[in-house]
């Protein structure tokens, strides 16, 4: 599964994207964030304030309870500031 990061989240994680093997007990976006935070302090810092983390699965906005099953690409990013 591919993870992609944008804006300050990308900077804090230290890379724009990565491939991960999803652990069996990680089934939702919220689970994935919790699992990432446990990897090391960079992820812990990047995801420290989950209120300002937005997620998308395969280019569609999703909430934290969204299921990861079948997803190809999960994106994490701060609230959007375009327009």
């Amino acid at each position: 599964m591919k993870l992609v990061y944008f804006a300050w989240l990308r900077e804090r994680v230290g890379k724009p994207d990565e491939e991960i093997d999803l652990p069996a007990d990680v089934s939702t976006v919220a689970d994935l964030i919790a699992w990432l935070k446990g990897r090391d302090e960079r992820y812990e810092h990047a995801f420290e304030n989950t209120d300002v983390i937005r997620a998308a699965i395969d280019h569609v906005h999703v909430k934290a309870h969204a299921a990861l099953a079948g997803a190809r690409e999960i994106a994490f990013f701060p609230p959007m500031t375009g327009g």
Partner: peptide, 10 residues
């Protein structure tokens, strides 16, 4: 566009 399009300004 402001709240949903994935763009970020710096």
């Amino acid at each position: 566009l402001k709240t949903r399009a994935p763009f970020w300004k710096r």
